[in-house]
Amino acid sequence: MSFLTVENIVKDFGGLVANNNVSFTIEEGEIVGLIGPNGAGKTTLFNCIVGYHRPDSGKVTFRGKDVTGFRPFETNRAGIGRTFQIMKVTTGMTVLENVMVGSFCRTNNRNTARGEALHVLGDLALDAVKDYYINELPIAIQRKVGLARALATKPALLMLDEVASGLNPTEIEEVVELLRRLNSAKKITLFLIEHIMEMVMKVSQRVIVLDYGEKIAEGLPADIVKDENVIKAYLGEKYAQGL
């Protein structure tokens, strides 16, 4: 039995099919990338798994448990964490408080929550900014805070939505390093949407490609870049024929 099983997910937004019959599995400990052109339905697929959308049909199983149609807080409690592509810039809570909310997911004690939040912040080298508000921080740090918040809920599977977009090459390098470390040291399974091909290819062990809501390819990064369907989807029909 697989760690995460997604079977025949269909999501239709009033005639606009965002996900059509998508199926795949993820094994424990893997790093899997999800790529596809804009509007391919990547974020919708994430939302269907996590529970922001209820799929029209299909089934999601996580660690042997049917989590289809769970609310996001229920999937989180089951062990799936996620980050958002766009972090809402808020002014109400400091970085530490944000991460503490994450830790409170697993404990009722404030001191324990605080200790764990500090630990996660230390792990991500965010100690220095712990008393800042999110709106006072550059975007790269905001992303990291989002990641820290999700990590503090102690997920077994972490789903990252474009964690590297808007970052410069050095920052991307750092994120790649960090993700690898989380995967190897903390044994967290990673599933990431990414736009930046370079990064996906570097970090993922396996890649799934979506186009127009359908899965068009799946395999090792090295094979995916050579896949005819993928090239077509990314570069357009004409270019592919010219190859």
Binding site: V50, Y52, R71, P72, F73, N76, R77, G81, R82, F84, M87, K88, T90, T91, G92, M93, E97, N98, M100, V101, G102, F104, C105, N108, R110, A113, G146, R149, A150, A152, T153
Partner: peptide, 26 residues
Amino acid sequence: RKSKLGYQLRMIKDDEDAAESLGIDI
């Protein structure tokens, strides 16, 4: 204001979607 519920409420006020992703039953 220092309790779990207090923190969770402030998160809800800031960003409901994020709050839900952090295991909070809004």
